[in-house]
Computed example of a mutant assay.
Amino acid sequence: MAGTSSGIVAGLTAAALGTVGFLAYRAQATVPASLGAGPTAHATAPSKAPRDQHNPAALPSGSGTGERVVYSVDDDRVWLVAPGNRVQRSFPVRPGSVDPPAGTYWVTSRSNAATGTDGVPIEHVVRFTSVDGVAIGFSAAVNGGSDTAADPSVKTGGIRESREDGDAMWKFATIGVRVVVIR
């Protein structure tokens, strides 16, 4: 009887290991190769994309195609872009003291709640890169204070949104969604 039990356990263990191996292979196959890496060259995004001066919320030309988050460092503005280049939402943001270089990134991690490097409680944190050890991502201050300028003496990578815009970003920018940073 003991031989039968150990045979069943060995069979179940082998099946479990096979399943885990298959799932790991599938997960690796579905994640972009450069997920978590630094910026990649973005041949269609100029260093300063032309803007529609009459409509600042208009999607800048040259910011890519397909589903993506577009972040303009110079204009302090974000666009959530659905497939077909349809802008779902555009809103102003307040950047931290550390800016990401222009390029293409992917959402690598998310946290529902955290404390920012400036000590402020934040929610809906969507991270996409780091610069000199400073995590760069979008977030909303729990107290709603997105209009206070970042302290330049503290290295912060939080790109602050209103709570309403942060909620929209949280729903849109899941792990692996592309983030295009333009000047």
Rank of each mutant, 00 (worst) to 15 (best):
S63H: 04
S72R: 08
G96T: 03
V69F: 06
P56R: 06
S90Y: 01
T30C: 04
V73H: 03
V70C: 11
L80D: 03
G84V: 01
A41D: 14
A102K: 11
G62Q: 05
G103S: 09
Y105S: 06
V70K: 12
P32Y: 07
S97W: 11
S63Q: 04
Q53V: 03
Q88T: 07
D74V: 09
Y105M: 06
T30K: 08
V70F: 02
T40L: 09
A41K: 12
A41H: 13
G62E: 07
A49E: 00
V98F: 11
P32E: 01
T44K: 07
Q88G: 11
S72H: 07
V78N: 01
A33W: 14
G103Q: 07
A82Y: 05
A45R: 11
A45T: 15
R77E: 09
G38I: 10
V69G: 08
K48H: 14
P60V: 01
P56F: 05
G38C: 10
E67C: 00
V78F: 00
S47T: 13
T44P: 01
G84T: 00
V93T: 10
A33P: 03
T44S: 14
T40G: 14
T30F: 02
D74P: 02
R94K: 12
V73K: 15
D99H: 12
L35C: 07
S72V: 06
Y105A: 07
G64D: 14
A43K: 14
Q53N: 10
S97C: 09
G66N: 10
R77G: 11
E67Q: 13
F91G: 04
P39N: 12
A41L: 13
D74E: 14
S63F: 03
R51V: 00
G62D: 08
Q53R: 04
D75Q: 12
S47M: 14
A57G: 07
V70D: 13
T65C: 11
P60R: 01
V73T: 15
R94T: 15
G36N: 01
D76K: 05
S97V: 11
R89T: 05
R68F: 02
T30W: 00
S61K: 09
D74I: 10
D76C: 14
N55F: 02
G103H: 02
A37W: 08
R86Q: 14
A45D: 12
A33C: 11
P101R: 09
P46A: 02
